[in-house]
Amino acid sequence: MKRIAEFLLRRRGGSGWHWTDIVTWVWLVGGLLIMFGPALWLVGSSFKSPAQLAEFPPTLLPYVSQQATVEGYDKPLTLYDVTLENGEKRRLAEIRRIGIVAQMVDPENPGEVIKVNIQNRTPAREVGFATENYTEPFLHFDFLLYLRNSVFVTLMATLITLVTNSMAAFALSKYQFRGRSLVMLLILATLMVPLSVILVPLYSVISAMGLFNSLWGVILPTVATPTGVFLLRQYMLTIPDELLDAARMDKASEWQIYWRIVLPLTAPALAVLAIFSVVWRWNDFLWPLIVLSRKELYTLQVGLNTYAGELNVQWHFILAMTVVTMIPVVLVFIFLQRFITAGIAGSGLK
């Protein structure tokens, strides 16, 4: 406790509170609440039953109503906290309800039936998780299909990105050839052309190739990332050419030089690009929304948007599916965050 207080009250320099110390702590604690709060609220809500989601005021934790099996009754009975007429508080189980009067029994002593006005009772609840929010979408919706599509798109796109970008980066960093600066310029130029600018013609290209309503139509336009080529090229430039020349002396082919020497040495940059590519492709929304119109081909993001756009939004499922969609990115965040922050700080990649 003392340690925590000491930690919380640590000040600049050590003597006296400076106003900037207060600003710092307000900002950091406020940031913690605002940045993590919404996601935690989502996760908490995703375990609530539909009835509980409709409650106002909302509870922080998910609850389920308690039930008890009582001797003489086949089904488990719902428990209530009841205030009796003499002011006594007891926990009773409901047998049946007629209008505003409920017939209830004490689970310990099921012989005596007590009649209670329903205004004098509240459901007995305990913290519990409505896990059916998670299992139902997997069983009864196409959610599993969406998940599979998303995984396929993400893995394939990342794999192709790594191979094609690293090959191009190798050529651009290790060879002198005519038109090299033209190629560099072309790649540089496309930094200015985000997908949203070429939506219409790209759609017609995809359709002409028969890739409309195909996961490959989602994958291919995204893989030739200029940022990836640049990142890898910058890294490969630091690999000394002498290494390559030595390998050539030993009769290594150019392909072997790329595959056995340059690629392993570029591993750190490849790892950064792979992480980014996974996050990019997992999160892609607009392009899959355009290319995929058949429901069974939807990726998670498109499927989620469709469910959330329905007239009668089933929030308990939506919230659970949103949490599932978030999981891979959260895992990346937890385990690989330092690669990402290093990548951004180093090259402004996003």
């Binding site: 191009a168 050529a171 060879y175 496309t190 070429i198 030739a224």
Partner: peptide, 28 residues
Amino acid sequence: GTGGMATFFLAPNMLIFGIFVLFPLVVN
């Protein structure tokens, strides 16, 4: 020669790039 190898290494990326970025850009 090495010039041909440069073409080989560039080809996949530039092919995808040409079809899905440059061509649509011009066509736009």
